[in-house]
């Protein structure tokens, strides 16, 4: 399966990756070959296999509604790229 440059651009945008033109082409080829590899799975007959999103066989893993401790604000902000007071400071979101 051969991806178009436009498809690669779209995936890069969704992943918030900025790719140079040569990277774009390299990614296009690599992603296409990954998809080709995955396409091999299309040959498997799955008629009788139920659709699943889980492989653990677990269900209903829940917890009681009880409050545990909060993270101290300084610990939470320790690895933040930037802070202002007790807030995370981030680049303003510019509408497209």
């Amino acid at each position: 399966m051969s991806l178009t440059p436009e498809q690669v651009r779209q995936v890069a945008h969704l992943a918030r990756l900025k790719l140079a033109d040569d990277e774009m082409e390299r990614m296009r080829l690599q992603l296409s070959s990954i998809l080709d590899h995955i396409e091999l799975l299309q040959a498997v007959d799955v008629t009788d296999v139920p659709i699943t999103a889980q492989v653990t066989d677990l269900t209903n893993v829940t917890r009681v509604d009880a409050v545990t401790s909060s993270l101290p604000v300084d610990a939470a902000l320790a690895n933040a790229p930037d802070r202002q007071g007790d807030y995370f400071r981030v680049k303003a979101v510019f509408e497209e």
Binding site: D65, V67, T68, A76, D86
Partner: peptide, 24 residues
């Protein structure tokens, strides 16, 4: 609820100081 949807973090945030009701 007392705690949040997916963790035991305090959900009563309404009059709490910024980032005081958070966990990992």
């Amino acid at each position: 609820t007392k705690s949040k949807m997916f963790s035991g973090c305090n959900a009563a945030y309404a009059s709490a100081p910024a980032n005081s009701c958070i966990d990992e």
